[in-house]
């Protein structure tokens, strides 16, 4: 039962080609090797349990990553209710509601300097971890894995326009969080 063909593809083959990718995706989302392992495992379990629910007209790998995304969201919500910042990051600035969240010029400079430092990794990771799973996942897909909006829309199962607005808000949330870190001193 476990190794039946999946869209003409052997299940074992699928696990071999996606096992590592799934782990990396989960790792990027959570930043923790043990959690990433458990989440990827759980995603493959759910995949097997719900094989018959896959709509054959939709790409199988995007469907799988959506399952994985759900696993990660479930886990994140269970563990980290406290640590995410509000989705409605205040967006004030001289250009109105939807305009760029401008920082003061020296803050902006400090932020840029931090981002361009070689050792920015730890601060960047901590800032990412403080974002909501929705914001984090769009940054993982587009900025970290280099996927286009269309692919990200398939994985997150939202319209293309949602990716466009979500990644913008995710970026603003990320800047806001990062600019408040002790490493980023004007």
């Amino acid at each position: 039962m476990a190794f039946e063909a999946v869209q003409g593809r052997n299940f074992e083959e699928f696990v071999r080609s996606y096992g590592n990718k799934a782990y990396q995706f989960a790792y990027r989302l959570c930043g923790n090797p043990e959690e990433a392992k458990e989440m990827a495992q759980e995603a493959f379990h759910r995949l097997l349990a719900h094989l018959d629910e896959h709509d054959p007209s939709k790409p199988f790998d995007a469907w799988f990553f959506r399952i994985l995304r759900n696993v990660v969201f479930d886990e994140t919500r269970r563990h980290e209710r406290r640590r995410t910042v509000s989705l409605d990051v205040p967006v004030s600035g001289p250009f109105g509601e939807e305009s760029y969240a401008d920082l003061l010029p020296d803050q902006e400079e400090a932020l840029l300097e931090t981002l361009e430092r070689r050792d920015a990794g730890a601060a960047v990771r901590r800032a990412l971890d403080k974002l909501s799973p929705e914001h984090r996942s769009v940054l993982v897909l587009c900025d970290m894995e280099g996927r286009g909006y269309e692919e990200a829309a398939k994985v997150l199962d939202v319209p293309l326009g949602t990716i466009r607005s979500r990644i913008n808000r995710a970026r603003m949330a990320f800047r806001t969080v990062l600019s408040r870190m002790p490493e980023v001193k004007p």
């Binding site: 071999r16 590592n20 990396q24 981002l115 920015a120 960047v124 990412l128 970290m144 990320f174």
Partner: peptide
Amino acid sequence: AARRALAALPAPDAPPGFVDSLLAGAR
């Protein structure tokens, strides 16, 4: 700059034996 910094975050490979353990778990 933010995009580059995010892309530069490490994404290590799964530990050795991970894929085999997935397959064993599926049986």
